[in-house]
């Protein structure tokens, strides 16, 4: 009887441990899987490159609860070896626009929209938590809580079936570019 109680206690303790580790790991696993799926859909395998996605229709919404009124530009960042720099032009539009960064655990650790942006041209550098980065200009340094994560640029659309509007927004998407930064002291 005593042995059974000991085995039961061990089993329940193990179950609690597996449960906590599994729930902790789940967002990281799903984020990595989603990054892979988006990269595969765009036929890309690289980090730190923007993907200019057209507006999604049924069957193209890889991510759960996708926004059907938004055009997305997407990038998976990896700042473990080098910082990543994003330059973008905030569009002159009445509709909502934003650029946001996500950690692997789903935290939205940075967001700026067209009204909160301090300038019409943004220069952002993502660095890892302990990364050494010497500022060289007016760039804004954003410290990422995880070495890998996601960059999303959202642009709201007035009418998703208006081809002229979509063509105009597609051109605006390309005004956001991302590249790795060679930084010796990093």
């Amino acid at each position: 009887m005593k042995k059974l109680a000991v085995w039961s206690a061990v089993t329940i303790s193990l179950a609690a441990l597996f449960h906590l580790v599994g729930v902790w790991y789940l967002p990281r696993f799903i984020t990595r899987a989603a990054i892979n799926r988006v990269n595969q859909a765009a036929k890309r395998e690289h980090y730190n490159q923007m993907i200019y996605s057209p507006i999604h229709s049924a069957g193209e919404d890889i991510i759960v609860l996708d926004n059907p009124d938004s055009m997305f530009s997407f990038a998976a960042y990896d700042v473990s070896e080098k910082p990543a720099r994003i330059k973008c032009v905030v569009p002159n539009t009445d509709n909502y626009w934003s650029i946001s960064f996500y950690a692997l655990n789903t935290d939205n650790f940075y967001v700026v929209n067209d009204r909160t942006a301090k300038a019409k041209a943004l220069d952002l550098v993502i660095v890892k938590t302990n990364g050494k980065y010497q500022k060289i200009g007016d760039e804004e340094i954003v410290v990422a809580p995880s070495d890998k994560g996601v960059v999303l640029v959202r642009m709201m659309v007035n009418d998703r079936n208006n081809k002229e509007e979509l063509a105009r927004l597609t051109e605006l998407q390309k005004q956001t570019v991302m590249q790795e930064v060679d930084h010796a002291a990093y």
């Binding site: 906590l20 789940l26 991510i63 759960v64 609860l65 789903t106 650790f109």
Partner: peptide, 22 residues
């Protein structure tokens, strides 16, 4: 989407509202 989200809330966000803004 917040850094104040708990263990379970982060897991739910990844399942039901991935890359939601805060």
């Amino acid at each position: 989407g917040s850094e104040n989200a708990g263990l379970y809330q982060r897991a739910r966000i990844s399942l039901y509202a991935l890359w939601a803004l805060n």
